[in-house]
């Protein structure tokens, strides 16, 4: 099997597993969002990934193209804040994969993704958003590969740990961005839904990469 075919397989498996995981966690994500938001984060992502999977399932496209389609589909199926954040960022970052998926291009993807989320949403670390999970994850991933020269799988596993700490970090702080910010101090004590879904997605990517 050609390199592209293997990568396409891996990408499609990843999309499937993320879709399944989100479907599984739909209720939980919605519960998190009902504590400090509007109770739709699980439904939003579930709808989005369901459509994304359907859009790429039997695709013969390049891996980068498939990732882009996932992003485009999320943009047009999710809505809400998470639609442009997840979808738009995947769409933009997919360009980094056009030459194939390598350790280097995956770092570039991760960085481009984080940059787009921050540009689009305007949130900084500590605002209690997905940025709080993403930032440590992307920084850890980059350092693990570029400085510590770890394998992508090991790097990703460290990134997942970092993301998890990021999610836990969101709980005791006050939200400054997103719907949760309307709650002011009452947002303290709940983890951020978008940070949590970011972690789940990364966990599935790690599982696929480890196989």
């Amino acid at each position: 099997m050609a390199e592209t075919d293997t990568q396409r397989e891996a990408v499609l498996t990843a999309v499937e597993r993320v879709t399944d995981r989100i479907a599984e966690e739909k209720g939980h994500l919605t519960d998190l969002d009902s504590a400090i938001g509007d109770a739709d984060h699980g439904a939003n992502l579930d709808r989005g990934f369901g459509k994304a999977l359907a859009a790429v399932e039997d695709s013969e496209d390049d891996p980068a193209e498939i990732v882009k389609t996932v992003g485009v589909t999320l943009v047009s199926a999710v809505g809400g804040a998470s639609g442009p954040l997840y979808g738009g960022s995947i769409m933009t970052a997919s360009q980094e994969l056009e030459g194939g998926i390598t350790a280097d291009s995956s770092v570039a993807f991760a960085e481009a993704y984080l940059k787009k989320v921050k540009d689009r949403g305007g949130a900084r670390i500590g605002d209690k958003t997905m940025v709080d999970a993403l930032t440590p994850a992307v920084h850890t991933y980059k350092k693990s590969i570029e400085e510590d020269e770890l394998s992508p799988v090991t790097a990703l596993s460290k990134a997942v740990d970092a993301a998890e700490r990021g999610v836990r970090f969101t709980t005791p702080i006050r939200a400054n961005k997103g719907r949760a910010s309307y709650l002011g101090w009452r947002s303290v004590g709940h983890p951020d839904p978008g940070a949590t879904s970011t972690l789940y997605i990364m966990e599935e990517l790690l599982a696929v990469a480890s196989e």
Binding site: D38, D40, S76, V78, G79, G83
Partner: peptide, 10 residues
């Protein structure tokens, strides 16, 4: 949009 969710950009 869906219930309480912004409509999509497209």
């Amino acid at each position: 949009g869906e219930v309480f969710t912004s409509p999509t950009a497209d």
